[in-house]
Design a protein around this nucleic acid. Sequence first.
DNA 1: GTCTATAGACGGATAGAC
DNA 2: GTCTATCCGTCTATAGAC
Lengths: 200, 200
Amino acid sequence: MDADVPADGHAGRRGDTRARIQRVALELFAEQGYDATSLREIAERLGVTKAALYYHFKSKEDIVRSFSEDHFCRMDSLIDWARQQPPGPATGHEILERYLTILIEGSDVFRFLEQNQATLRSGDDGKHRFEQFRPRLYALVDLLIGPDATTRARIRTTAAFFSISASLMLYRDQADTSPEELRKIILEIADDLTRDLGYP
Amino acid sequence: MDADVPADGHAGRRGDTRARIQRVALELFAEQGYDATSLREIAERLGVTKAALYYHFKSKEDIVRSFSEDHFCRMDSLIDWARQQPPGPATGHEILERYLTILIEGSDVFRFLEQNQATLRSGDDGKHRFEQFRPRLYALVDLLIGPDATTRARIRTTAAFFSISASLMLYRDQADTSPEELRKIILEIADDLTRDLGYP
DNA sequence: GTCTATAGACGGATAGAC
DNA sequence: GTCTATCCGTCTATAGAC
């Protein structure tokens, strides 16, 4: 809501300290983990002091929220879009494709969220951030197969989404595979797992 | 299980204190995260003090190692076994099946390792524990499809392993699905992803 | 907007008595 | 094997000057 995160990080541009903090923090969080990264460390890499950070963000977790909320918003947008489409295989395929795009564009955030599941809690209710992911995942699954599908269909579709994220994370930096090739292979897998499941 | 104190007098917990520490620690680590769980917390739940923990384990990370190493040993055993089998679809299927069994039997450890990737480092080389998982996963993938398989085959097979773990973690506590049914569905998915890939 | 300085809390680890 | 007591480090967060 109030998190005005630029959709595209203008790398290196000076002047917007807030965005630079976000970029460096995400980098360090994804690399070393949330707990293992101190505010002092972030400040040092930026060439400022801890106190400067507190001018822009009210707490350490507020920094996380500023970019992780953006990621969940993108998922919500996808869900909203999908709800307005006619159910069917074509829409199903496009959901998977758009999901992949979201992960590609926010892969740093996603990696961070994935690897720090255990330590991240939302400030309000104390629930794991993974609990912010799970209902959205289920919503997408339902949109692919309908709410009355079999358990088998539900599990297969869930596996499709996880195959997308796992494949992307493991193979996106592989030299022998172009991004286009990787994208094709990933979507083929996801399509195979969701074929002939719902809306017959 | 039984967290009960032996009924007999002062002889205490006999030799099982070490095991009780492991059980409680794993529980808390998996639930709250490694960093978020203090030794004080573990000690309190056990009804002992922090210092008692240090009698049994030389550090906090030593507690983790005591059960996470066991998990990697199981994966190594699977790899060793697989190397001695004739390559082919039948062996491939059994690899997937045995992998699933390992995850089921050590699901708490696996969940812990998965959710704490970011914070866990091995004491020696400072590498992420995930880096202890990745080469083993690749070894299993190679055993299913051979070292000269296409990238497509490699990604699909990797996705098969991730589908197994993700499906298990998300659906193992679902009331409407029996463990047998779940097992069947999961293996069906994994088989689909590894069908017609290697050893034609 | 950024700084210095410090409060305030907590965690891991150790020493030594029993 | 377990305890009490404590050291020492690091961290988040705040106060107030410039």
